[in-house]
Amino acid sequence: MQWQEKVSACNAVKHEICEILKTIKDADFLNKVKNDLKKRKKKRIREQRRKEEWKKEKSMKEERRARLHAEADSWIRKEQAVIEQEKQEKNLLRDADLILSNVRSKRNDARKYLGILQELQNLRNIKVTIARARGEKLSSATDETFKHDIAKITEHWTTLDREYATEEQELKLMLKTDNEERIEKETKNLFADWENVLFGINILAADQSHKDLDSFILIRTAWDRFISSENDATTIPIGWIVPEKPSSAAWQKCLNKDTS
């Protein structure tokens, strides 16, 4: 009985295997399996390509982020350098003004003391004249000592006055030169802002426009709009005010939408 049961079990397994083999040998089944394998392969390729593209995009974003950070840091350093330079220039001007005020005060003191010495000398001369008119005898040694002391003190304050005058002129010249340089710098910056607002490029780039015909035509067209005598021409406004830069990225996007 046991042997018969085992034989029956083997036959049942054999039957299942035969059925499976029939299915595998079936052409439609094989085609379906092949199609499924192709689909799986294509899917893996797509997923791999998508993964590579994602990695590439991620790398590009990281590079762009790093570049933007570097540009932002560079811009911040430049702005800080400009602010620091302007602060130093203001401090120098303030110090120069203080020194100039101090020099003027010292020069006024020198002139005041010179005036006092002159008044003392005049008063001495008046007293000597009155005394001689009375017939009084005056000591020539005392008179010489007084004149010597007055001359010595006068020479001292006169020398200081000349030194203060020279220092005052040098400070005035320095302040005048610095003021002229500041005005010239502000004027250049103003013209650069105007050129950028009106034409979108600076004059240095325009000097190279002859190398590019399209750029040359574009710039000439922009200029000719303001010198044409036709009705559609407009003049450059007097007292042009350069617009302020956007205070945020969100505001910049709004401006871009308005101008597009």
Score class of each variant (00 low, 15 high):
Lys55Asn: 13
Lys56Asn: 07
Lys56Gly: 05
Lys56His: 14
Glu57Arg: 15
Glu57Trp: 15
Glu57Met: 08
Glu57Tyr: 15
Glu57Cys: 10
Lys58Met: 00
Lys58Ile: 00
Lys58Glu: 03
Lys58Gly: 11
Ser59Phe: 11
Met60Glu: 15
Met60Val: 08
Met60Leu: 03
Met60Asp: 08
Met60Tyr: 15
Met60Gln: 09
Lys61Leu: 10
Lys61Cys: 10
Lys61Ile: 11
Lys61Ala: 04
Lys61Arg: 13
Lys61Pro: 02
Glu62Leu: 00
Glu62Phe: 00
Glu62His: 03
Glu63Pro: 06
Arg64Leu: 12
Arg64Met: 06
Arg64Trp: 13
Arg64Val: 06
Arg65Lys: 14
Arg65Met: 05
Arg65Gln: 14
Ala66Lys: 04
Ala66Leu: 05
Arg67Trp: 11
Arg67Asn: 08
Arg67Leu: 03
Leu68Lys: 05
Leu68Ile: 07
Leu68Arg: 12
Leu68Ala: 07
Leu68His: 00
Leu68Gln: 04
Leu68Trp: 11
His69Ala: 05
His69Trp: 02
His69Cys: 10
Ala70Cys: 01
Ala70Arg: 00
Ala70Gln: 07
Glu71Gln: 09
Glu71Cys: 02
Glu71Phe: 09
Glu71Lys: 13
Glu71Val: 07
Glu71Ile: 02
Ala72Asn: 10
Ala72His: 14
Ala72Glu: 15
Asp73Gly: 03
Asp73Ser: 10
Ser74Ile: 06
Ser74Phe: 14
Ser74Asp: 00
Trp75His: 04
Trp75Ala: 13
Trp75Thr: 13
Trp75Glu: 14
Ile76Arg: 02
Ile76Asn: 11
Ile76Thr: 06
Ile76Val: 09
Ile76Asp: 03
Arg77His: 05
Arg77Pro: 01
Arg77Ile: 11
Lys78Arg: 06
Lys78Gln: 08
Lys78Phe: 01
Lys78Trp: 04
Lys78Tyr: 02
Lys78Met: 01
Glu79Trp: 02
Glu79Gln: 09
Glu79Cys: 07
Gln80Val: 08
Gln80Ile: 09
Ala81Gln: 10
Ala81Asp: 12
Val82Ser: 15
Val82Leu: 07
Val82Cys: 13
Val82Trp: 01
Ile83Asn: 11
Ile83Tyr: 14
Ile83Asp: 14
Ile83Cys: 10
Ile83Met: 10
Glu84Gly: 06
Glu84Val: 12
Glu84Asp: 12
Glu84Tyr: 03
Glu84Met: 08
Gln85Gly: 00
Gln85Pro: 00
Gln85Tyr: 05
Glu86Tyr: 04
Glu86His: 06
Glu86Cys: 05
Lys87Ser: 12
Lys87Glu: 04
Lys87Thr: 10
Gln88Pro: 00
Gln88Asp: 01
Gln88His: 03
Gln88Val: 08
Gln88Gly: 01
Glu89Val: 01
Glu89Pro: 02
Glu89Asn: 09
Lys90Gly: 01
Lys90Asn: 06
Lys90Asp: 12
Lys90Met: 10
Lys90Thr: 04
Asn91Ile: 15
Asn91Glu: 11
Asn91His: 03
Leu92Thr: 01
Leu92Ser: 08
Leu92Asn: 08
Leu93Arg: 06
Leu93Asn: 09
Leu93Val: 05
Leu93Ser: 15
Arg94Met: 11
Arg94Asp: 14
Arg94Val: 11
Arg94Gln: 15
Asp95Glu: 14
Asp95Met: 09
Asp95Gly: 02
Ala96Cys: 11
Ala96Ser: 13
Ala96Gly: 02
Ala96Lys: 08
Asp97His: 11
Asp97Gly: 04
Asp97Gln: 05
